[in-house]
Design a protein around this nucleic acid. Sequence first.
DNA 1: TATCTTTCTGAAAATTATTTTCATTTTCTT
DNA 2: AAGAAAATGAAAATAATTTTCAGAAAGATA
Lengths: 143, 143
Amino acid sequence: MDRVKLFNDFLSQKGLKSTSQRKLILETFLESESHYSTEELYLKLRKEHPRIGYATVHRTLKLFAECGIAAERNFGDGQTRFESVHADEHHDHLVCTNCGLIIEFEDQKIEELQKLVASQHNFKIENHRLELYGLCEDCRSQK
Amino acid sequence: MDRVKLFNDFLSQKGLKSTSQRKLILETFLESESHYSTEELYLKLRKEHPRIGYATVHRTLKLFAECGIAAERNFGDGQTRFESVHADEHHDHLVCTNCGLIIEFEDQKIEELQKLVASQHNFKIENHRLELYGLCEDCRSQK
DNA sequence: TATCTTTCTGAAAATTATTTTCATTTTCTT
DNA sequence: AAGAAAATGAAAATAATTTTCAGAAAGATA
Ligand SMILES: [Mn+2]
Ligand SMILES: [Mn+2]
Ligand SMILES: [Zn+2]
Ligand SMILES: [Zn+2]
C-alpha cells in the first residue's frame, strides 16, 4: 500500500519512530473508508486491542493529517472526523441530518465557480469546504 | 426595526420574558454586522455593562438563532459565531486564514449546481455551508 | 548483544468552549 | 400588592481535545 509507505517516510523524515500502535492504527484506519472520530476509531480498536490508549489514537490521527494521508472534517456534530485522503483527489460532502450517512461528490463546475468568486475578491483560496446537509434517500422515504 | 419585533413576538409566543439584558444584547448584536463569538460579544457588552453575565449572553444568542434572526457559523477556529440573518437572504463566506477577515458572497450558479448534485443523489437539502479559506487581498500583498 | 538516547505510550490531569445548576432577582399576570 | 413563572450571574459541570509525565519501547551506537 502506498499510504503506508507515505506514512513511514513521513515518520523517518521527522525522526519519529515506527511503533506497533502506529502500524495498527494506520491499518485499521485504512481498512474502511469511514469518516472516523477519535472516539469511534478508539472504540473499534479497543475491541481487539484493549491496551490501546485514547491519546495515542488521537495523536496518531493528527499525525496522519499532518502527513497528508488523512484530512480533518467537521460536520457540525461537535466531533472532529478524519478521513483517508487519496492522492490529489478532492471531494465535498452530502451529510444526512437524520442517519448520519455521508455521500461524497465532486463537481468540477462548482470548483470553477469558487475560483471565480475568489478572484473577484482578490482572494487566494488555500482550501474550501462545501457541505450539503439534508435527508438522504432512505430517510426521506421513511418520513 | 423589524428584527426587534420578530424577537419580541418570538418571546411572547414562547412564554418568555422581555428583560433589559435581552434588549441590550439584541441592540448591540444588531448594531454591527459582525460574526460574533459569545466571548467577543460578552467582552464588548461588559465595557458598558460590567454586570452582564457570560451565560446570559450565550443563552440569548442561542435564542436569536432559535428565533431565526441569527445563524450559527463555524469557521474552524473552535468558536461558534453568530451573525445576524436578513429576511430570506442567504450568503456564503470567504475567510482569510491570516487576519480573520470575512467576506460574504452569494453565487446563484453555485446554488443551482448544489441543488443539482443533491437531486442526483435523491437527497433533499435542508441547508448547506460553503466556505472558501485563504488569503485576502491585503494579506496577499503583505507577504 | 548490551547500552544509551530519544521518542512513545497510556492514564490522568489540564484546557477550552459550551451548557447546566441554583440561589436570588425580575417580570408580569392576577 | 402578591404570587407564579422565568431570567440572571456565578460557579460548577460537561465534553472534546490536548498536555503532562513516569515508565516502556525503539533504534542508534559501541
Ligand atoms: Mn469524505
Ligand atoms: Mn456572514
Ligand atoms: Zn439518512
Ligand atoms: Zn487577511
